Simulated scan of single mutants.
Amino acid sequence: MGTAAGLSLKYRILFTLLVTALVWAHLIWDHFNGGVPTHYLLQSEDLPGISNWWGGLTLPLATFLLLFWIHRYLSTGNEQKANESRKKSFLRFIRALVFGIFISVLFTMGSPAPGYMMLLAILISFFVPLYRPEYLLGFILGMSYTFGANLPIMVGLILLLLFLFTYKIIRYGFLHLISNLRIK
């Protein structure tokens, strides 16, 4: 993949261009088929709305920045470790992509399951470092067709902080407490 351990610049650019082409194709299709939707915070038209047009800029930018973050994360090991890390990173991305797609599909069906799925993700983040950038990228891309790009980016960033806090702070405190109880 180019660099000794990370993702090559060529791969990051090509993937970003693919995402850019898909988001702009979707925006153009929306434009000529009823208009580009605006999504409102908390689904209330009394609150500020965010047009999907912004996604033509924010989704490619978020994609490139997250791929850079993944590249930096993968660039810390040797070549053999990097190949294994790339595979794991790709699987994390796919899991999050499928999770985002499921949330989107269930939401459009009117199911209450997406709320429970989010709570389950928070619980899982106690055991699994869901704050990694490949999870965020998959989640955003999986939900962007249904919700536009901006709401998944905002929700994803909030979840990333929550997952980071859960895994690094709450989990550490819990494990520290357990180890102190074992010593006594």
Score class of each variant (00 low, 15 high):
N83P: 01
I122S: 00
L74E: 01
K168S: 15
S111L: 03
S85V: 05
P129R: 07
L157T: 03
G115P: 04
K168L: 15
G110T: 07
L106W: 09
Y135T: 06
G56T: 01
F93C: 09
G77H: 14
I13F: 07
S51H: 11
I70Y: 02
V23Y: 04
P133K: 03
S44H: 13
E84S: 12
Y172L: 15
E84P: 01
F64C: 02
T63G: 10
G115M: 05
L123W: 08
M154H: 00
R95C: 13
V128A: 06
S51W: 12
S85P: 01
F107K: 01
G156Q: 05
M154K: 00
F127M: 07
L162K: 05
E84F: 14
R132W: 05
L57P: 01
P37M: 06
I94T: 12
L47E: 06
L41Q: 05
F139C: 02
V155N: 11
I122P: 00
S75Q: 08
H176V: 00
I124Q: 02
L106C: 03
R12H: 03
L159K: 01
A121V: 05
G115T: 12
V105P: 03
M154D: 00
L61D: 08
P37V: 03
R86C: 11
N83C: 06
W54E: 02
F64T: 03
G49F: 12
R95W: 10
I124L: 13
I103L: 02
A113I: 13
L41Y: 09
F93D: 04
F15M: 13
T3E: 09
F64K: 00
K81Y: 12
W69N: 11
F68Y: 12
R12W: 01
P48L: 13
